[in-house]
Simulated assay, not measured.
Amino acid sequence: MKLVYKGKTKDVFLLEDGNYLLKFKDDMTGENGVFDPGSNSVGLTMEGAGRAGLRLTKMFFEILNKKGIPTHYVDADIDAATMTVKPAVLFGKGLEVICRYRAVGSFLRRYGMYAEEGQALDAFVEVTLKDDDRQDPPITEDALDMLGILSHDEYKVLKELTKKIGAIVKEELGKRGIELYDIKFEFGRVGEDRHIALIDEISGGNMRAFKDGKHVEPLELEKLMLE
């Protein structure tokens, strides 16, 4: 097993069979001890956060696989806080795709002249470049195509998958009285045919969720969803 990447919330290892092992950490993104899924830095460490994120990720990936939605998921070991995944090729140096149902976070900071906090959004899809130095700038479909990162046809697939997966997550949370405000996904090209598939994770650390008007922290979200 060879370490190939040390990330903010996960380390990535290459396995002998060509698959990869993701090791989930207890570190979470945010600033000054406050969790923020859109942050570019580790802001806090919460014991058990890695396993909690993996439990939720395992649940969602297995739901998606049953529905025939392409992912890189193979299996997970909760005790070891690891997930085995198929190799994937990133778009450029990585993209983040956000599906927004409420105007909060960076959306509100940018568009606050027109949007009110918590305003309902119709599954608004936003793509940003994974670029910490430039604060993960948003990028348009045309720019993605012109820069050779993603073609127009691939963008359509990406957007459709984002809305479909977001709706599934939203529905699952809704069954437990939890409202999804926004969620962040990552995609890559997987397999010999290089089809677009969901990669990385689906956990409380990638979304904003609220119950009874109060923000649900990632560890609490895992308890509410899996108890």
Results as ranks from 00 to 15, higher is better:
residue 149 I to C: 11
residue 75 D to M: 11
residue 18 G to L: 03
residue 168 I to P: 01
residue 158 L to N: 02
residue 9 T to H: 01
residue 137 P to K: 06
residue 135 Q to Y: 13
residue 150 L to E: 10
residue 217 E to V: 01
residue 28 M to I: 02
residue 176 R to A: 14
residue 19 N to P: 05
residue 25 K to M: 14
residue 200 D to F: 08
residue 114 Y to L: 13
residue 164 K to E: 15
residue 100 R to T: 05
residue 210 F to M: 10
residue 200 D to V: 13
residue 72 H to L: 14
residue 52 A to V: 03
residue 29 T to F: 02
residue 56 L to V: 04
residue 187 F to R: 05
residue 191 G to D: 15
residue 214 K to E: 14
residue 106 S to M: 04
residue 14 L to Q: 10
residue 185 F to I: 13
residue 45 T to L: 01
residue 129 L to F: 11
residue 127 V to Q: 10
residue 18 G to S: 01
residue 36 D to L: 04
residue 210 F to S: 04
residue 98 I to A: 09
residue 37 P to R: 01
residue 57 T to R: 00
residue 40 N to F: 04
residue 45 T to A: 04
residue 194 R to L: 13
residue 186 E to G: 04
residue 6 K to R: 15
residue 178 I to T: 07
residue 23 K to I: 12
residue 24 F to W: 13
residue 57 T to S: 15
residue 11 D to T: 06
residue 218 P to S: 14
residue 14 L to P: 00
residue 34 V to G: 03
residue 8 K to A: 14
residue 174 G to D: 12
residue 148 G to R: 04
residue 39 S to Y: 00
residue 149 I to G: 12
residue 2 K to Y: 03
residue 166 G to D: 02
residue 113 M to C: 08
residue 33 G to T: 03
residue 176 R to Q: 15
residue 132 D to K: 00
residue 27 D to P: 05
residue 204 G to P: 02
residue 88 A to K: 00
residue 174 G to Q: 02
residue 198 L to G: 12
residue 200 D to P: 08
residue 32 N to Y: 14
residue 72 H to D: 15
residue 123 A to C: 12
residue 162 T to C: 02
residue 2 K to S: 08
residue 219 L to D: 08
residue 186 E to Y: 00
residue 27 D to S: 15
residue 77 D to N: 15
residue 107 F to P: 05
residue 145 D to T: 10
residue 55 R to Q: 15
residue 164 K to T: 12
residue 49 A to R: 08
residue 81 A to F: 12
residue 164 K to F: 01
residue 139 I to D: 13
residue 120 A to Y: 09
residue 162 T to M: 02
residue 157 V to H: 05
residue 11 D to K: 09
residue 117 E to N: 06
residue 120 A to N: 10
residue 165 I to E: 05
residue 196 I to N: 07
residue 187 F to L: 07
residue 35 F to S: 02
residue 107 F to K: 11
residue 75 D to P: 01
residue 150 L to M: 14
residue 56 L to I: 01
residue 121 L to V: 10
residue 108 L to T: 04
residue 52 A to I: 03
residue 214 K to N: 12
residue 47 E to V: 07
residue 4 V to C: 09
residue 222 E to N: 12
residue 108 L to G: 05
residue 106 S to G: 05
residue 198 L to N: 09
residue 214 K to M: 14
residue 79 D to A: 10
residue 176 R to M: 13
residue 192 E to F: 05
residue 109 R to D: 11
residue 135 Q to C: 06
residue 194 R to D: 13
residue 155 Y to K: 09
residue 83 M to L: 04
residue 88 A to I: 04
residue 151 S to Y: 09
residue 140 T to L: 06
residue 149 I to R: 06
residue 53 G to R: 04
residue 119 Q to R: 00
residue 97 V to A: 08
residue 52 A to Q: 02
residue 107 F to N: 13
residue 87 P to A: 11
residue 9 T to I: 12
residue 171 E to R: 00
residue 75 D to Q: 10
residue 88 A to S: 13
residue 177 G to D: 04
residue 63 I to Y: 07
residue 33 G to W: 00
residue 113 M to L: 08
residue 6 K to L: 02
residue 27 D to A: 15
residue 61 F to A: 09
residue 24 F to G: 00
residue 77 D to Q: 08
residue 2 K to G: 03
residue 201 E to D: 14
residue 219 L to I: 10
residue 23 K to N: 12
residue 4 V to H: 07
residue 172 E to G: 11
residue 217 E to N: 06
residue 77 D to H: 11
residue 47 E to T: 06
residue 156 K to R: 11
residue 221 L to S: 05
residue 35 F to K: 02
residue 183 I to W: 10
